[in-house]
Amino acid sequence: MKVMIRKDAAGSLSAYVPKKDLEEPIVAMEKAQMWGGQVTLANGWRLELPDLAADTRLPVTVEARRLEDA
């Protein structure tokens, strides 16, 4: 699914899913950087993000995969 990742003025990361008209803060990251790993949104969704360069400029729209809850 298409997901736009952006950072607000306070430095908080959020994810916007246009198809669901959903915007949620990113509350956890699997590893130190989010690219190529998993992030957790405030609503409990877990997304697997593509492997991009650490210095990728935000906002950026990527193809992410929603992971099923365990």
Rank of each mutant, 00 (worst) to 15 (best):
Thr56Glu: 04
Leu52Phe: 01
Ile26Gly: 06
Ala28Asn: 11
Leu13Cys: 04
Ser14Met: 02
Pro59Met: 02
Glu48Leu: 12
Ile5Glu: 01
Thr61Val: 15
Glu68Val: 03
Trp45His: 13
Glu24Val: 09
Ala10Glu: 15
Arg6Trp: 00
Arg65Glu: 13
Glu48Ser: 13
Pro59Phe: 00
Lys31Thr: 13
Asp69Lys: 12
Ser12Pro: 00
Ala15Leu: 05
Ile26Lys: 05
Val39Gly: 08
Trp45Gln: 15
Arg65Tyr: 02
Leu47Pro: 03
Val27Met: 08
Asn43Thr: 09
Val3Arg: 05
Ala10Val: 00
Asp21Tyr: 09
Arg6Asn: 12
Glu68Asn: 03
Asn43Glu: 08
Trp45Arg: 15
Val17Glu: 11
Met4Val: 10
Glu24Asn: 09
Asp51Lys: 13
Met29Tyr: 04
Ile26His: 07
Lys19Glu: 14
Ser14Trp: 02
Arg66Cys: 03
Arg65Met: 09
Val3Asp: 01
Glu30Phe: 05
Arg57Asp: 01
Arg65Leu: 11
Leu52Gln: 03
Leu67Ile: 07
Ala64Cys: 09
Ala42Arg: 12
Arg6Val: 00
Tyr16Ile: 11
Leu22Phe: 01
Gly44Asp: 11
Lys20Arg: 15
Lys20Gly: 06
Asp55Trp: 00
Lys2Asp: 14
Thr56Asp: 03
Met29Lys: 15
Ser14Leu: 02
Asp21Leu: 11
Leu41Phe: 10
Tyr16Leu: 12
Glu63Val: 09
Met4Thr: 15
Gly37Arg: 14
Pro59Gln: 03
Thr40Phe: 01
Arg65Trp: 00
Gln33Ser: 10
Lys7Glu: 14
Lys31Ala: 15
Arg57Thr: 04
Asn43Ala: 06
Glu30His: 11
Lys7Gly: 00
Met4Asn: 03
Leu13Asn: 05
Ala70Phe: 12
Ser14Asn: 07
Lys2Leu: 13
Trp45Ile: 13
Ala32Arg: 14
Ala64Leu: 07
Pro25Gln: 11
Glu24Leu: 10
Met29Val: 14
Glu23Met: 06
Asn43His: 11
Ile5Leu: 14
Met34Leu: 15
Met1Thr: 07
Gln33Tyr: 03
Gln33Phe: 02
Ala9Thr: 08
Pro25Cys: 05
Pro25Val: 09
Val60Cys: 06
Val60Met: 02
Glu24Tyr: 04
Ala42Met: 08
Glu48His: 11
Gly11Met: 03
Leu22Gln: 08
Gly11Glu: 08
Met34Tyr: 02
Leu22Cys: 03
Asp8Lys: 02
Ala32Glu: 15
Glu30Ser: 14
Pro18Leu: 04
Met1Asn: 07
Ala53His: 04
Leu67Phe: 03
Thr40Leu: 10
Val17Met: 12
Ser12Gln: 10
Thr56Leu: 04
Asp8Arg: 04
Lys31Gly: 11
Gly11Ser: 09
Leu41Pro: 08
Met4Gly: 01
Val17Pro: 04
Pro50Thr: 13
Ala54Pro: 09
Ser14Arg: 08
